[in-house]
Simulated scan of single mutants.
Amino acid sequence: MRVLSDMTRRRFGLLTGAGLVAPLTLHAHDGPHLVEVGIESFAFVPDRLEIHAGDTVRWTNHDIAPHTATDKAGGWDTGRIGKGESVEIVFDAAGTYQVICRYHPKMTAEVVVTES
């Protein structure tokens, strides 16, 4: 976390009063991104993602056992991911996806996709 000095706070206050902060703090989604999810110690890491429609998630298995990343609702499935292998899924539609491993159903994750 960045610490602001008193002088920086005053300048920020002046900008706020002038209505100049909003244009400086808005962030547009600048196109599709690749987001990495590791599979390690029988868990998805991270186990919750917030991404935009059009983004790609790369699932990489770092475990000795094979795994899958499977949409619990049945919309998509990576298929078997062996040790050291990766599979990419592009998320085109907004929504919340509950993810499990078909081989190890206690392995769960959530992918929240918003409109870009």
Rank of each mutant, 00 (worst) to 15 (best):
V90A: 11
D92S: 10
A43N: 13
R9F: 01
G13R: 00
G19C: 11
I100Q: 07
G84V: 07
L49N: 04
E115H: 10
S86D: 05
G84F: 10
A94D: 12
A28T: 15
T16K: 07
G38Y: 15
I39A: 08
G75E: 04
T96P: 01
R58Q: 14
G54S: 09
G38P: 05
T56F: 03
F42N: 13
P46R: 12
G38L: 15
R80E: 14
I89C: 04
T108W: 12
G84D: 00
I81V: 07
E110R: 06
T56K: 08
T78A: 00
G54D: 03
S41N: 13
C101D: 12
A93W: 12
G74V: 05
W59P: 01
W76H: 13
I51E: 02
K83C: 08
T114D: 01
V111K: 03
T8A: 12
D63G: 11
E88L: 00
I64R: 10
A109P: 02
E85T: 15
G19I: 03
I89T: 15
E36R: 15
G74S: 02
R9L: 00
F91A: 08
V21I: 07
I100A: 14
F91V: 05
E36K: 14
R11P: 00
I51S: 15
V37N: 15
M7S: 02
G13I: 00
L15K: 07
G17L: 09
F42G: 13
T78D: 07
C101K: 11
P66A: 15
V111T: 07
G82L: 11
G13H: 01
G17Y: 15
D6I: 06
A43V: 09
A69D: 01
C101M: 06
R9K: 11
F42I: 14
L24N: 00
G84N: 02
L4T: 01
V99S: 05
E88T: 08
Y97W: 10
C101P: 06
I100H: 04
V113A: 00
S86Y: 05
V112N: 13
N61G: 04
I64F: 08
E50W: 12
L4R: 03
G75Y: 10
F44W: 04
E115T: 14
F44D: 04
D63Y: 04
A94L: 05
L15M: 14
D63V: 09
G19M: 07
G79N: 07
R80T: 11
G19Q: 10
R102Q: 02
T25S: 09
P66H: 09
H67F: 11
S5F: 00
M7P: 01
G95T: 04
